[in-house]
Amino acid sequence: MYICQICKKNPATIHLTDIHNNVKKEVHLCAGCAAEKGFNMQSAASLPQLLGIKAKKQSTEEPRPNRFAPEEDIICPKCGYRWSDFKNKGRLGCSEDYHAFREKLRPLIANQLSATPIGPGPLHRGKYPGKKSSVDPVTREIRNLELDLRRAVDEERYEDAARIKSELRELRGYAGTPAKAADKTELN
């Protein structure tokens, strides 16, 4: 089991690999040390960014707090866990911590490197307790066919690819989903 390379104590849960001139570098961190380093854990940060070699421009939504300013500790009113405990252990104490520490946790969790940065609203896009999952069978079938198409093209089975494409066209018409730019170019 990898131990966090910074605190040399907690199990690492964030693994980064960078390959440069055929040399593989790995960084393994616990969530606490990643937070300490200002690392956005829901995105793939590059090693230089993580190690602070090159300050990469983050999204413009909020200025980065001055890392060198002495930091105020925060205590969760519900369970007594502190922000410093989190940095120490890489784990939280109770679900209320997400509120108590929200100013610090949110930028860690926000997915800033995606094509569309997530604004101030909800970060969660998945299922809700008690609700059935939202995937309809047509969308699922489209996804499966897209994969089949890719495989057929990779394997140069062009007749199969043409058949899958026409099936896809039909299904997308049914679901009202626009074709992806990617599979337009694939067969050319």
Binding site: I14, S95, I109, L123, H124, G126, G130
Partner: peptide, 24 residues
């Protein structure tokens, strides 16, 4: 989920002890 009250937040999703698992 019908029998247990989960720790869930509309902003963060399912709340987990390590933030690397939060959301789904």
């Amino acid at each position: 989920s019908g029998r247990l009250a989960y720790a869930f937040d509309p902003v963060y999703g399912y709340l987990t002890s390590c933030p690397t698992n939060v959301g789904t």
